[in-house]
Design a protein around this nucleic acid. Structure first.
Length: 227
DNA sequence: AACCAGGACGTGA
DNA sequence: TCACGTCATGGT
């Protein structure tokens, strides 16, 4: 078992399944370790919407925005583009960057509607304004159940603290590190997707405990466990 | 009061 | 390619 697998095993034992993606319908949210989501096109879009809104923003703030949209009955692509732009910006204001994100979401809706239910390629997603590597992988992993590991600032912080990367490691490097380490042992495609989904969620959970305040990694139990 | 949150883009070296 | 400023609200 390599270090990346050891970290996963430890985190899973400690925190258990995280039940990502947290959908607005929170009955589903509490069915953790259920990987049959998204159930329909509406939930796929909800993941996409949340993936954009959560850029450099806590998900609690995103939930507020989604609730605002739900109150306006505007959680669908059609409803959003028919909504007054200022009303839309006001609804997503709790998530920050509302001017940018409104533009990003509208450009994504164009793209999403052209898909007509098909699975987007990563390259196509990256060509949409406002969708970078992490958001693309978030949409593919949680919205379309594609085996794309989602790296974020927490992931880099943890890997750096554990000495598994250096400061100038790029997104692509960290993603390859994680995927290469897991692909060997997890052969089944569906299980691989489930592991990727849980792993990122577990890193977020763990990092909220040990990697949010400086100095990062204080009393993080992963450090001694990997020696 | 500073710092961080499940980042991406535009610009100039 | 890459470092840096900008975008904005909310919680600790």
């Amino acid at each position: 078992m390599n270090k990346i697998e050891k970290i996963y095993t430890l985190l899973y034992k400690t925190y258990g399944p995280q039940g990502w993606w947290p959908f607005m319908n929170y009955e589903d949210f509490y069915h953790k370790a259920d990987y049959s989501f998204p159930k329909d096109e509406a939930q796929v879009f909800e993941v996409c919407l949340g993936s954009i809104l959560t850029q450099n923003t806590s998900f609690n703030a995103v939930v507020k925005s989604l609730e605002n949209l739900k109150a306006l009955n505007a959680l669908s692509p059609e409803a959003i583009i028919n909504l007054d732009i200022d009303a839309f910006k006001l609804a997503i204001k709790p998530s920050g960057y509302h001017n940018q994100k409104a533009k990003y979401i509208l450009s994504f809706i164009d793209f999403f509607q052209e898909l007509k239910g098909s699975i987007p390629t990563r390259e196509a997603l990256l060509n949409v304004l406002g969708i970078g590597e992490e958001t693309a992988d978030s949409i593919l992993l949680y919205g379309y159940n594609q085996p794309q590991f989602k790296v974020d600032a927490y992931t880099k912080r943890v890997l750096l603290e554990l000495g598994l990367i250096d400061e100038k490691a790029k997104y692509k490097d960290m993603k390859k590190l994680m995927q290469d380490a897991l692909r060997e042992s997890v052969r089944d495609e569906k299980e691989l997707v489930a592991v990727y989904q849980e792993y990122h969620a577990l890193i977020v959970c763990h990092s909220k405990n040990f990697y949010s305040k400086k100095p990062y990694g204080l009393s993080c139990f992963l450090k001694e466990a990997l020696i």
